[in-house]
Simulated scan of single mutants.
Amino acid sequence: MKYKKHVFICTNTKEAGKKCCGEERGMALVQAFKDEIRNRGLQTQMRAQKTGCLDACNFGPALVVYPEGTYYGNVQLSDVTEIVEKHLLSNEPVKRLVLPY
């Protein structure tokens, strides 16, 4: 595998009135993760990118970290540094954000 950790952030949008991650900071989260990874010089070890629906709309904004397959929900911009430090660097999921999948 090329990357030790791969973060997929949902940026899906839906019809007006339906909850979706894209309208709930999806692209802002993508950029925040990319910035955090780049600022730490980790771009050859880790990658963050947008993805389509993760089927966790009610818990959005949602993302998943591989290779573990850990799903996170209700992720805020203020959570990005903690997820990078604890999960991506120390393999310790941020329990308060982990979805029960």
Rank of each mutant, 00 (worst) to 15 (best):
K2T: 10
K4W: 02
K5S: 00
H6T: 09
H6E: 07
V7F: 03
V7W: 04
V7C: 09
I9L: 11
C10I: 06
T11F: 03
N12M: 08
N12R: 11
N12A: 14
K14A: 07
E15M: 06
E15T: 12
E15D: 10
A16D: 05
A16M: 09
G17C: 06
C20A: 13
C20S: 14
C21R: 10
C21Y: 01
C21A: 09
C21K: 10
G22C: 13
E23Y: 10
E23M: 13
E24L: 15
E24T: 13
R25F: 06
R25G: 06
G26V: 03
M27A: 12
M27L: 13
M27Y: 13
A28L: 13
A28R: 06
A28Q: 08
L29I: 03
V30L: 06
V30K: 04
A32C: 00
F33Q: 05
F33N: 01
K34S: 04
D35Q: 08
D35F: 01
E36K: 12
I37W: 01
I37V: 09
I37Q: 05
I37T: 07
N39D: 08
N39T: 00
N39P: 00
N39W: 02
N39I: 01
N39V: 02
N39G: 03
N39F: 10
G41D: 10
G41H: 07
L42W: 12
L42E: 04
L42P: 07
L42G: 09
Q43H: 14
T44V: 11
T44E: 15
Q45L: 08
Q45F: 02
Q45D: 11
M46I: 15
A48Q: 02
Q49N: 11
Q49K: 13
Q49H: 13
K50R: 15
K50A: 15
K50P: 14
T51M: 11
C53S: 05
L54P: 03
D55T: 03
D55E: 13
A56W: 02
C57T: 04
C57K: 10
N58L: 14
N58V: 06
N58C: 09
G60L: 11
G60P: 05
G60D: 12
A62Y: 04
L63C: 07
V64T: 10
V64G: 06
V64M: 09
Y66L: 08
P67K: 13
E68G: 15
G69N: 04
G69H: 12
Y71A: 00
Y71I: 08
Y71T: 05
Y72G: 01
Y72Q: 11
G73R: 14
N74S: 14
N74W: 10
V75D: 05
V75C: 11
V75A: 02
Q76V: 08
L77C: 03
D79C: 01
D79N: 09
D79L: 01
V80D: 05
V80W: 01
E82L: 03
E82Y: 02
E82K: 14
V84G: 05
V84R: 09
V84N: 00
V84Q: 03
E85Q: 11
E85F: 01
E85R: 04
H87I: 04
H87S: 04
L88T: 12
N91R: 13
N91V: 05
N91D: 15
E92F: 00
E92C: 12
E92L: 14
V94G: 05
K95Q: 15
K95D: 15
K95L: 15
R96F: 07
R96V: 07
R96E: 14
L97C: 04
L97S: 03
L99P: 07
P100H: 09
P100F: 02
P100G: 10
